[in-house]
């Protein structure tokens, strides 16, 4: 007999060892997320997937599912917190969607639309961040990095290269690359690496390929991120 939890009153089965996020994904229940990608070990840093379990806020991507958990997910309170977190991500970096190649394919933008973000709300930090275009095939635009570390995990766990890492703490954090010069072009990164494909924003892009996908054919032009990440999903 399957073990189950409930998410917003819906009975959701899970296997031993799965997280709440794993169970939700398997059941087609959408929990907003940015740093979580089912292909990689959970990270629990963006906190967008925070749900309420028996009255406590927890990151659903790292919290193991336990028989009988009553999980609240799609509530006004949690979605308001998620909106605020998303707005903070926007103002901490330099996310200029109108001129970004990833617009329409960007998970940060799609989550913002899903949560009904109409403005950044908070004052922009306008940080000074570097663009590293030294690699022949890949461009690293730190202005758009949200420190999800998906590229770090992908390079380490899938590509076996350890090209990316985070340096510094808090607001001083920055995405660094593993070369003596500090330049992407001097690393072993290849354009075909998983680390290049996995960025949820426009921080890591194929070089020289701007705007080749026309408006109307981008991932989120016709589907919400909920539809894409659940394959149809529950309302």
């Amino acid at each position: 007999m399957n073990k189950t939890i409930t998410i917003d009153g819906l009975s959701v089965p899970f296997q031993e060892g799965q997280t709440i996020m794993d169970a939700a994904l398997a059941a087609g229940v959408y929990i907003p997320r940015l740093c979580h990608n089912p292909e990689f070990k959970p990270h629990g840093s963006c906190k967008l997937c925070t749900v309420k379990v028996n009255g406590r806020n927890v990151a659903s991507c790292t919290m193991p599912a336990v028989e009988g958990q009553q999980v609240l997910n799609d509530t006004d309170e949690l979605n308001a917190d998620r909106l605020a977190l998303t707005q903070m991500l926007f103002v901490e970096g330099n996310h200029l969607c109108p001129a970004c190649e990833k617009s329409g394919n960007c998970q940060l933008q799609a989550v913002a639309y899903y949560l009904g973000m109409m403005s950044p709300h908070y004052n922009h930090f306008y940080p000074q961040r570097e663009v590293d275009a030294s690699h022949p095939d890949v461009i690293l635009d730190r202005n758009r990095c949200i420190y999800c570390e998906l590229c770090v995990r992908a390079s380490r766990d899938a590509d076996g290269k350890n090209v990316f890492g985070l340096s510094g703490r808090g607001i001083q954090s920055s995405l660094v690359v593993n070369s003596a010069s500090g330049r992407l072009g001097d690393t072993s990164l290849a354009a075909t690496d998983k680390a290049v494909q996995v960025c949820p924003t426009g921080a890591i892009l194929q070089k020289g390929k701007g705007f080749t996908v026309p408006i109307g054919r981008r991932v989120f032009d016709h589907h919400t991120i909920k539809e894409i990440q659940t394959g149809g999903g529950h309302d």
Partner: peptide, 14 residues
């Protein structure tokens, strides 16, 4: 200045 050339045609139309 400092932006990739591929971005410019979309950026400057603003």
């Amino acid at each position: 200045q400092g932006r990739p050339y591929t971005e410019v045609p979309v950026l400057v139309q603003r």
